[in-house]
Amino acid sequence: MSKVIKIAMAGEGGQGVQSVAEIIAAAANDEGKECLYIPNFGVEQRGGVSIAFVQISDEAIGAPKFNTGDIVVALSERAVARTLQYVGPQTTFVYDASLNVSAEDLPKNAKRILEIPAVEISKNELSPRVFNIIIMGAVVGATGVISVEGAKLAIEKQLGAKFEKQPKLRELNFSAIDRGIDLVTKAG
């Protein structure tokens, strides 16, 4: 297939996978890349697993969804089960260390499986509010599809108004991005 980076992120409603996916896609767009973001939506959305599909490339992007992702992120037990279908021999599979999953539950065919303690870091070091930004950092770190600056710019764009009122939030978000990147590059 063409050089397209394919990202699938799944979690429970409220974990913020959709907003992270949108920020990543917006950052890619701002860097002049081709990108496509599509949420899963439907009746399932209410109470189901929320999945976001993002593709980023220098060339035109094909179908909005894909069979196999380059990076697949699962943030809940149900999300792990739901995203197995998107994992293949080229896939980096990322899941949170806090999940109650055994080796049985994890994909068998992934290129790489990364367990990251995003929940723990957000709770103990940063703030639960930036959990999804740590995840965003992990995706940025694992794929390199957008630059760190681009990612921060996109966050600034999205949350700039809030940062004006609470400048501390900016620091918090930017540390979250950096921590997320660290998690995957170090684990790598």
Binding site: N29, L36, Y37, I38, P39, F41, I61, P64, K65
Partner: peptide, 10 residues
């Protein structure tokens, strides 16, 4: 279609 309706692209 629903995909075109809901997806984002430049």
């Amino acid at each position: 279609d629903g995909y075109q309706a809901k997806m984002r692209e430049p």
